[in-house]
Simulated assay, not measured.
Amino acid sequence: MNVQNYMTAEVVTVPEDTKVLEALDIMKERNFHRLPVVRNGRMVGLITEEIIQENSPSTATSLSIHELNYLLTKTTVGDIMHKTVVTISATDLLEEAAVRMLEDEVGALPVVEDEDKVIGIITDKDLFRAFIDVMGYNNKGSRIVIDIPEDHSGILEDITNILAADNISINQIAVYRQKEVTQVVIQMDSLQLEEIKEILTTEGYTISSATSKEPKNN
């Protein structure tokens, strides 16, 4: 899946001359933690709650509340914004977005095209949502985890053939290779959990986890 499948397309941006207090009000009203800063429709920086906090006088200073408010009303986002911003393209894979967030220790990436034109934003929460969707966690049906002590070619084909022979449809399948064991996670439509477990254990497979989820009532 690509970034465009999970990004927020309606992005709130602010120009460089926006006052810091105004930017804070926008973040609070929209429940945002960051805002792209634009000039002529092109991104030139990023302002976040953390940046504002870092650039605010400490409570230990001798500034009065009046002086502090005066300072904040005069400071613009352009004065303190981060000008070097990690971005991503809408056509990039979600995995690439995850890697960039981890490597650069950021919680969001502005999505840009055509020389930094902002067309969206993707956050770590969007990646969590994508992971849940890919794994089918919220779907009705059964989920099993099969432990494979000695991984070898042909295992997935064997498992899918076994389930297909009993008309059990697979919605999602994932493989996690660890040092001591390989785990195959399978999400299926069927709610016949005990029958599925018996089918696979009879064929010699070890089930380490098995759960089922009934469909939600509308």
Rank of each mutant, 00 (worst) to 15 (best):
Q53H: 04
V112Y: 09
F128N: 05
G154I: 05
S153K: 14
L46Q: 10
I168H: 02
N161V: 00
G141E: 04
I65F: 02
T59F: 13
H82M: 11
E29Q: 12
D158H: 15
I144E: 03
L163N: 01
I155R: 03
I65G: 02
V112C: 08
V134W: 06
I155N: 02
V99K: 12
G41D: 14
N40G: 03
A164T: 11
T84I: 08
T73M: 12
V112F: 09
I144K: 06
I159L: 15
I119G: 05
G45M: 12
D158G: 03
N171K: 15
D166Y: 15
I168K: 09
I119Q: 01
T91Y: 06
S89D: 13
D114M: 00
D92V: 00
K28E: 06
I168V: 15
E54A: 04
G120D: 01
P57K: 13
Y137W: 11
H66Q: 13
T61E: 10
S58K: 12
T160G: 01
L102V: 14
D79Y: 03
R100D: 06
R34K: 14
K125I: 10
Q53Y: 04
V44Y: 09
D133W: 01
Q53F: 04
V38L: 09
S169A: 11
I168E: 13
A164V: 00
E157M: 07
P149E: 09
E96P: 03
V37F: 11
I26A: 08
S64L: 00
D151E: 14
V112M: 03
R39V: 04
L163S: 04
P110Q: 05
I132S: 14
K28P: 00
N31F: 08
S89L: 05
D79E: 14
D151F: 13
S153D: 04
I80C: 13
P57G: 04
I162P: 04
T123G: 04
I144Y: 01
V38Q: 09
Y70W: 08
I122N: 10
R129E: 01
V118W: 03
I52F: 08
G136Q: 07
R42A: 02
M81C: 08
Y137K: 03
L163I: 01
E150C: 00
V44H: 11
I65V: 11
D158C: 00
T87S: 07
S58D: 07
E95N: 01
F131Y: 12
